[in-house]
Write a protein that binds this DNA or RNA. Sequence first.
DNA 1: CCGAAAACCGTTAGCGGTAACATAACGCTT
DNA 2: AAGCGTTATGTTACCGCTAACGGTTTTCGG
Lengths: 345, 345
Amino acid sequence: MATVPRIDTRRTLTLRDVSEASGVSEMTVSRVLRNRGDVSTATRDRVLKAAKTLGYVPNKIAGGLASQRVNLVAVIIPSLSNMVFPEVLTGISEVLEDTGLQPVVGVTNYSPEREETVLYEMLSWRPSGVILAGLEHTDAARAMMANAGIPIVEIMDVDGEAVDSVVGISHRRAGMEMAKAIVAAGYRRIGFVGTMMPHDHRARKRMEGFAEGLALAGLRLEDSEFYSGGSALLKGREMTEALLSRRPDLDFIYYSNDMIGAGGLLYCLDKGIDVPSRLGLAGFNGVELLDGLPVKLATMDACRLEVGRRAAEIIAGKGPTGATPGQRIELTPRLEPGETIRAPR
Amino acid sequence: MATVPRIDTRRTLTLRDVSEASGVSEMTVSRVLRNRGDVSTATRDRVLKAAKTLGYVPNKIAGGLASQRVNLVAVIIPSLSNMVFPEVLTGISEVLEDTGLQPVVGVTNYSPEREETVLYEMLSWRPSGVILAGLEHTDAARAMMANAGIPIVEIMDVDGEAVDSVVGISHRRAGMEMAKAIVAAGYRRIGFVGTMMPHDHRARKRMEGFAEGLALAGLRLEDSEFYSGGSALLKGREMTEALLSRRPDLDFIYYSNDMIGAGGLLYCLDKGIDVPSRLGLAGFNGVELLDGLPVKLATMDACRLEVGRRAAEIIAGKGPTGATPGQRIELTPRLEPGETIRAPR
DNA sequence: CCGAAAACCGTTAGCGGTAACATAACGCTT
DNA sequence: AAGCGTTATGTTACCGCTAACGGTTTTCGG
């Protein structure tokens, strides 16, 4: 290990320390460290050297207060254990990377109250923008966002009214498209397996759209199963078994996400159920995991990376406050039929 | 720009606005909002009402500067797409929840330089503590942490020298234990499939410990495959196929994580390879996903939740700076033999 | 060689809170 | 009614940094 520079452990360093060590004013040090304003190369080098040997770390708290600018972007999502959200984050980070903006993540666990709290906390840091999942929020949360005077981007869902900008897909439409594809392929007795979470509005909307799509063909959901908690893969297995034992005549099961869909698929393979002839299956999300399964599950890509990117672009490109009117970007998920839906007849 | 900007009549609110609206001093408002010091119930109510109707959101930037205290804890991890880290985060959040401390996550993508940058950024917000994965850091990063004057907890790995406190398991030992178990079960021709990432030190240490464990029994790794990028499940499949086609005589494969292990397992099931008699398999991490597989993969739990919890406790319980000497907490992962290692003979 | 522009660097005045220290108001005892 | 400990509120002085502006020096065309 290299030797650590000698440091006065008593006090944390300030610009003053660097200024004294390099014989210039604090203002000049500030300019050097921010790369702003004119500073001669000679003094710049001197200052940088001093800052480095002292081990000076700027204080953004003070800087932010003085400049009234904070390079943070609040990102508020329901969960980290659903791989969907880390992927959105990746898209966001990618874009923010070279804008000097930094994402700060908050997690709500699908609780609107928690979301409100997290939002409040985040806003109290006066971020440059907010990206948050969904269009459903408490009134207080809406009010806070409307008054914050910074760009707000609601993501992942466009079925509803946005506070400012919105980037996402229509889950209602996604569900409907899937229903149409299934019907077109000739399936008629259709079941559903989904999450029980009352606050997963996107899953709900997908199911509603799906049911609506079936209705257009004069069909309806024959039966459904809901779960909460536990290993999604395992639950998919169990729910599928439960559903099929109750309704062995089903010829299709639509899952509210790929993970439980994969569980269902593995169950069918296990039991020797003929997929997709005897039983068709489809999930939602287009997760990478599916690539590794023995049979590729039908799914619909939710454009997660793209959603993150576009949202970040809005934040990064937008003027200080309401300069641009709220944008509405609806992406179109594409159906990936995989090998668990038979060809349309 | 020539256009007159639309004047935002709602300047962002300050304590002064609330104080004027409620007819007390700013100081009193501050006391009410922080629940600190004595304030009569009457004025407290008045202030809270005013703050609420105005929609006031405190400014932590200013507050932090004045009080020299910031309720943030920097958490720096390599990735969010490896489910291990979100789980650690869960443990951290659980504990911090009721301490008033708030985690802020930074991601390094396994790059030491990126880690250094992220750390610098984080420290510039003057957090109350830092939790970061691993013991390997750049010299500059080490120096920053040593000088920060706040508790630092390095997590997930104890094989090395810590800056301050450390909570984790010994991956070297984990690898060795697995090797011993495998040897005890009678396997002799053993292969390895792992990641290529040069900076995943924990995976490396596991492999080293594993090799060492084999050596104790006079054995060695017969062959190995490394991958990077892509769907881990799919890669597990492909690597297993590659390895077995090269060395069909192998009777065991050790995977550097559960995800690729699961891929390998699915491959074997597909091909009708007799697991665990003809070929044994084991992964690492104890991920929830495994519960949903047709056959339960042998693995070793990395105590992720517990690691997060203990780390957070150290941060939460610790005095301002170096009050407690650095702690060293080594947890013991337990082997979960599953159904892919045959019984010891 | 002059004068104006550009380059360089310092001074001043906060940013919006809070710690610490007054100060005022209020019981309650004696 | 004076005395005194609480309780409730106000005042003052920063926290560490940067915007805005000012002063001084250098550069350079004419």
